[in-house]
Write a protein that binds this DNA or RNA. Structure first.
Lengths: 192, 192
DNA sequence: GAAGTAATGTAATATTATTACATATCATTG
DNA sequence: CAATGATATGTAATAATATTACATTACTTC
């Protein structure tokens, strides 16, 4: 009588954080990725990555710490920072410098169901570009902008500077928030 | 008998930090700039800017705090952060996110003896590009790279994102340090 | 010189991150 | 399996960076 059809088809034991099937898949994928690079995706690291994937906005280290505490363990800061370092090194997350917070790398989010080239060959070259909205706090990774990197590479070449990593962070107001703001002027005010 | 020929021609009273004539000039220039924007360059702010201009590398807020203490006053963190905020708002310094440290904006450094257009019209549009050397800690502002900004602007336009400020930080190894490293292999080691 | 604004002083505390060292886990291999 | 070595985690303390809230001072303008 015990129907097990609801169990998500994850290769790992249940994470205990109620991660959705989609995220479990992404976690499995991430595990395969760093295994391929000789890294070990432990439960701890998996949990941290899962929490970052679950969040709808950048998450701070101490936020993660709090969330991890709800489970059995009582981690201290080094635990989190070590996990974050690992995930950064393997190109699974990015750090938004202006926010001291972390987001998943898009190549995990948009995972095209199969292991495609982008993720395999070079996990984002340790570089990323972000649009940060001051109004809603949302962050968009601009993955379609290799041009930015190209320009930077050209500059670095000219100056004989060896580029190891790069970050581009643009702050401003996103389309939705701008519309909401102008809408407010014209029509009835739409509160937050 | 009292020769006054050594007194620097600064418009401000002596700053008490032994700033060079060159820096005093830059400070005076900065003062005129923010006066033009309705800002008041107080002694405190002038001191902080002077210390940042004097440094050969990015300076942290608490570094500045220590240096300010050598003078008569005993400032606390808010003092520094307020001065830094002011200088940032008026485009006189930049914050390097990856280092939590501050550098002068190049348009002060390269001051072309006369008040030229760049500085007057738009103090760097709150955006800057930096090359950060992991070996020597040096930072170079890439002023000759409007292309980077142009590309970013194009991207933001396409996404209807209103850009208010942007930062580009490239980490790696600068030419000098790279040479020193390869030199070490071939010849006698050249210690730091 | 009184009122109002802008700037600074001061104490306390919040937030983010690291150090140093002890313990545990895992993968081999003898 | 026991011994080993490498990797990962636990733990306590503390460092480094930044902000809040409120009192005081200084500057400007009328």
């Amino acid at each position: 009588m015990n129907m097990q059809t609801r169990t998500p088809p994850s290769t790992q034991p249940d994470d205990g954080y109620g991660f959705s099937d989609r995220i479990q898949h992404q976690l499995d994928h991430a595990g395969r990725l760093c295994a391929g690079q000789g890294g070990r995706m432990t439960q701890q690291r998996r949990d941290v990555l899962g929490l970052i994937l679950s969040a709808s906005a950048p998450v701070g280290a101490y936020d993660l710490l709090e969330q991890l505490k709800t489970s059995g363990r009582k981690p201290a800061p080094p635990t989190i920072y070590r996990a974050l370092d690992f995930l950064l090194e393997h190109g699974l997350i990015h750090r938004i410098e202006r926010l001291s917070a972390f987001v998943p790398c898009t190549h995990l989010q948009h995972e095209h169901t199969h292991d495609h080239a982008h993720a395999q060959t070079e996990p984002c070259l340790h570089s990323a570009q972000f649009l940060i909205c001051r109004t809603c706090g949302g962050v968009t990774e601009i993955a379609d902008a290799p041009r930015v990197l190209d320009v930077l590479k050209t500059i670095c070449d000219k100056k004989n500077f060896t580029m190891q990593s790069a970050s581009v962070e643009v702050e401003g107001v996103c389309e939705d928030c701008a519309q909401a703001a102008t809408g407010q002027k014209g029509h009835a005010p739409t509160p937050n």
